[in-house]
């Protein structure tokens, strides 16, 4: 599904990622944890193709294609989804209209016809329920005037409608109360599928008690310094990140 090899990336000439290695297979759920400034969010932005980050070296293959040869919209259409840490407001653009355009762009890229309005409506209603998104938010402009919790639910709602192959969730849990966190986790768990992979980026272990990962990675200063099973998250919770500060890349 995704293979990251020796990835180096910088922002405004400051190196952030310093040789990231990671492989994600189909159906796997990976979590990357790490302290603030370790490069977790940078990794998600680089994978999605944010132009404010510069890839210095390394290679990423996504479903057998060289990711860095694809512009961001092609990556999205090929099934790479990023749930934003800070979802962006798009005034004037109706949320479900936006999703329909997104869905149809992916379908067009696969040579499929546009989704018919009835199926689309059905899908949208059903998935909104999955994440507990209020129906009224479907007709409102994308994220405009949404509360913090509503914005995060809306990201998971987009994920549920677009059905990507790989979903990267960048600190989706931050700033959520317990009910919203549960709703978000329910949505993600519903979307788990042998053909769909997840990369959860989080600061806290909390999310991982709702979404059980197959693998946990610890990122420190732009490198993955330790990888393990879900028990690693518990260890982190006990010892904190300080214990990993001195470790070199695994």
């Amino acid at each position: 599904m995704l293979r990251i090899e020796d990835l180096h990336a910088s922002v405004a000439e400051t190196p952030i990622l310093k040789g990231v290695q990671l492989s994600i297979g189909p159906g796997e759920v990976h979590a990357i944890m790490g302290p603030n400034g370790s490069g977790k969010s940078t990794l998600s932005k680089v994978l999605a193709g944010d132009e404010s980050y510069t890839v210095e070296s390394g290679r990423v293959d996504f479903e057998g294609q060289n990711l860095f040869e694809m512009p961001p919209e092609e990556r999205a259409r090929a099934g790479l989804f990023l749930g934003f840490q800070y979802p962006v407001e798009i005034p004037g653009v109706n949320n479900s209209y936006f999703l329909k355009a997104a869905l149809n762009a992916a379908r067009a890229a696969r040579g499929e016809p546009e989704i018919d309005p009835v199926s689309f409506l059905k899908r949208v209603r059903e998935r909104a329920q999955w994440v507990g998104l209020d129906d009224s938010l479907l007709k409102r402009p994308v994220n405009a005037g949404f509360s913090g919790g509503e914005k995060k639910r809306n990201e998971i709602f987009h994920l549920a409608v677009l059905e990507p192959r790989l979903a990267i969730l960048d600190e989706t849990d931050s700033g959520l109360d317990i009910d919203a966190l549960r709703a978000v986790a329910d949505g993600v768990n519903r979307m788990r599928d042998p053909q769909r992979s997840f990369l959860l980026i989080t600061h806290y272990q909390r999310l991982l008690s709702y979404i059980e990962p197959d693998y946990v990675h610890v990122m420190v200063r732009g490198q993955i310094v330790r990888s393990g099973g879900k028990e690693l998250a518990a260890e982190l919770e006990r010892s904190g990140y300080a214990a990993f500060e001195d470790e070199e890349a695994a």
Binding site: E73, L82, V88, G92
Partner: peptide, 21 residues
């Protein structure tokens, strides 16, 4: 970038946003 990340081209994104405006 947000629009592109959802698979929508820049041109379509601009036209959507301006139409919305």
């Amino acid at each position: 970038f947000y629009c592109k990340q959802r698979g929508i081209s820049e041109e379509d994104a601009v036209s959507m946003i301006v139409n919305g405006f």
